[in-house]
Design a binder for these strands. Sequence first.
DNA 1: CTGTTAGCGCTTTCAG
DNA 2: CTGAAAGCGCTAACAG
Lengths: 345, 345
Amino acid sequence: MKKNATIKDIALKLNISISTVSRALRNAYDINPETKKKVLQLVEELDYEPNLLAKSLVQKKTKTIGVIVPEIDVHFFASCIRGIYEEAYERGYKLLIAQSNEDYDLEVESIQTMVSSRLDGLIVSLSKNTKSFTHFDKIIRREIPLVLFDRATENIVSSNVTADNIGGAFEATEHLINQGYTRIAHIGGPENLEISKKRFNGFKKAMKANSMEINPEYVVHCNLSKSDTILKVKKIMSLPKPPNAIFAVNDLVASEAIDYIKEIGLNIPYHVGVVGFNNAPFTKFSHPKLSSVNIPSQEMGRYAAQILIKQIEDNNIRIITEKLNCNLIIRESSNRKLYIQEHKI
Amino acid sequence: MKKNATIKDIALKLNISISTVSRALRNAYDINPETKKKVLQLVEELDYEPNLLAKSLVQKKTKTIGVIVPEIDVHFFASCIRGIYEEAYERGYKLLIAQSNEDYDLEVESIQTMVSSRLDGLIVSLSKNTKSFTHFDKIIRREIPLVLFDRATENIVSSNVTADNIGGAFEATEHLINQGYTRIAHIGGPENLEISKKRFNGFKKAMKANSMEINPEYVVHCNLSKSDTILKVKKIMSLPKPPNAIFAVNDLVASEAIDYIKEIGLNIPYHVGVVGFNNAPFTKFSHPKLSSVNIPSQEMGRYAAQILIKQIEDNNIRIITEKLNCNLIIRESSNRKLYIQEHKI
DNA sequence: CTGTTAGCGCTTTCAG
DNA sequence: CTGAAAGCGCTAACAG
């Protein structure tokens, strides 16, 4: 790598002081247009690029935000990152990203690195395996602005933006009820996961609100792996009186349920209606197209960034909690009424 | 934000010089174990975290890599980023990411920012609309290590890692031929895009190698938008003698072609076979499941990072060009033989 | 409008 | 093994 020109080089060539050059570059108000012109000209000639490191060191701000997500290539997180990026970009912030890979130790390490890098603020979505939160003490103690998103916890006192999982689950379940399904099952996720709990709660709430009884045999929890999901689907579908609708904790689980149900010769949505959660890209392409609760992921990222930047610039860490509405996207897998109508049954 | 402790604070408290503290922290060899112990103890007490900015400023290296992609949330790029991240992480590098949003100006600006941030090296995948490459001069001139990936160009002298698009397209086309399709069409992407050209070339090569004539009417190019794709599909399918197979430049185009073809009452793969490119996540879920050429995206990211870091650390920008093999994933949309067998036609 | 001075928090010779 | 001094490239008072 070649040596970069500095303001000192420019000052020397022009026989002026470095502070004058500095002023010209920052287009401060108290600068002679003539001088400024000359400086700008030399900038071109010398191919000068300001050194942001030096600037950050003195100003004690890096104009960069740190983002930690469990997995970068999971569409939901990638989409959040895009939202964060766009908001940050518009406000003049850069993005340093890290992935915890759902690993507690990696999460701790990433936070450490980000603190050392003197980032202006952090946006993080917790790893599934994070059960202790002392690594956030470092951040709280230093009063580094922090916003948690999606995978938040009450154990950390910070701003956070999450989706209204309860509301989304409620809407999904009620939709199944309205479609005329009478025996509604729920395939949940790991019971310790906040999100699993919320979605299950929304399910229960909707059942109750509609005076439907929950058959305990219809409620199962899987660890989100394919094999375990199939096991649990099999279990409920093998009951003497199997359910005729399933609200699944996410789209993959829903899709695996659908595969199994189709395999045993039942029609979806006629015999069994299915709704997933997340509105993953594949839901539009699956067969039948999968109904799903959409989480506005990109908006979630934008909000998180917005809140964070506000905290950074107002230099005030008032805690803001934003809960974003989810919306149910009704596709074929649960639209029994339309199916009946179209097939004149 | 609170003031951070510095080595000076430690030095003062211990009544030693800052250079000694510095040595203790970097565990240099020439340090008294006793002194080191005391320093480390104070580190805990004062909650000291090294300031990487200061370190970077003097060492002239930031231990961070810049990544610019067209769109962060496109699965292919997200997956590459993951690969880059993992390799970088293992080698002690951080990641600054930016998105060009397929916009030339944003790409230029991102590069500018990264140069100013004094990143140790850059990994970029070009925007679709980048037709001039002078913004890379800044990087070349400074001898900043640079690796292009996927969307590379010969107009920039740099290392690059790409997929063997020609080979992948060849395999896909030959597969269609082997399945017994006789009138094979190609829906390409924008003609200026390197990738479009390569995939088209692979198509031509396979046709030639199998002594198949290319009907010029069967070759169309779209701008990858949905509307334009449908327009072009319509065009070829409305020919007096329409094609009975399509090799599409990517999965989305393939999927839109399939939708249209199903709509006009033809069966896939029986009447028309379709193969896409990218092996996007949805291909497994679409109906029929879409055959597609898989690009090892995560590996591509890893390689790019590997090459870059080698250049950074060897301080030698020998140009390395890596071409990764693609592999065809045969699913239902092109498996005419299996279809015939299963349906006993 | 411009120059001087003093750092930001660290590493890196060079002496001792 | 330790300290002094210089400096990375910039900003930020404070004079003038």
